[in-house]
Amino acid sequence: MADKNMPMREALRMALREEMIRDERVFVMGEEVGAWQGTHRVTRGFLDEFGEKRVRDTPISEMAIAGAAVGAAMAGLRPVAEIMTINFAFLSLDAIINHAAKIHYMFNGQFRVPMVIRAASGWGDQATATHSHTPEPIFAHFPGLYVGCPSTPRDAKGMLKAAIRDDNPVLFTESIAMYSKPGLVPEEDDFVLPIGKADIKREGRHVTLVAYARGVEWSLQAAEQLAKEGIECEVVDMRWLRPLDMPTVFESFKKTNRCVVVEESLPYYSFGSEVAAQLQEHMFDYMDAPVKRVSAMDVPLPYAREIELMALPNAQKVVDAVKEVI
């Protein structure tokens, strides 16, 4: 089968649909996933195809959506719960962190929690302070949970399928800005990408750019621009914030001796902080320059377009950071 060009939302839809066909235990639940066809259209057509039993509209009850998914997973189902946007997952934090992530450990392996929480994440659409979050690192802080953040339609398909098939709870974020962006996606229904494996999206020898989700796009754009000036960037797409594939980063760093971390998230206690800390702990002898971080600005997001864009990372900010470490 040839790869097919499609936007990320269609790749996610394909993954979810294939897994629902493959495994009767897989079902979706969340706000507007059924009759409304999904806020982001990822579950478009599902209600007609799979019926009310497996495509479950819920009340606006984020605590109960996440918590009921935990219970259903413990009992043997494989829920894929949609939290409309990650901003609302703050209401589900207890169910995700205290229950989904802890139950397997706390009861010494008596229960498994094979569930996925999907949530749209990101900012940049004048969505304002409460609706402009990329808090993936918060979730990745806690052992017991996996956190997946795809950057391409292809990865979205392979990673979501892996998340659904895994016996551990997975928080899966989908960058809002990328839902409509197209890419080539394998049509095979056994296309599954391993959990916790990073991917080199571009090879280079001068500097390693470590990124996830939308940060990968900015990194690739920056690499393109820098290549014209003779600077070759290696772009490592982490794909998963937990497990975090640091060995792949270390291998790249041994070659480049320089690193810029690119993230859509905020800079304090962040993905960038973690990568930088691990590099100085384990790669100090290979280090030719301080690790730079390109993050969102440390401000709540405002409404006005002009100042909102100031706060966001972009390719140019990545270019500038690379030039500081070269």
Binding site: M63, A64, I65, A66, G67, A68, A69, V70, G71, A72, A73, M74, A75, G76, L77, P79, A95, H99
Partner: peptide
């Protein structure tokens, strides 16, 4: 409490 609901859903 939502866990109870989820376990009941499996039934």
């Amino acid at each position: 409490l939502p866990l109870a609901a989820g376990i009941a859903l499996e039934s």
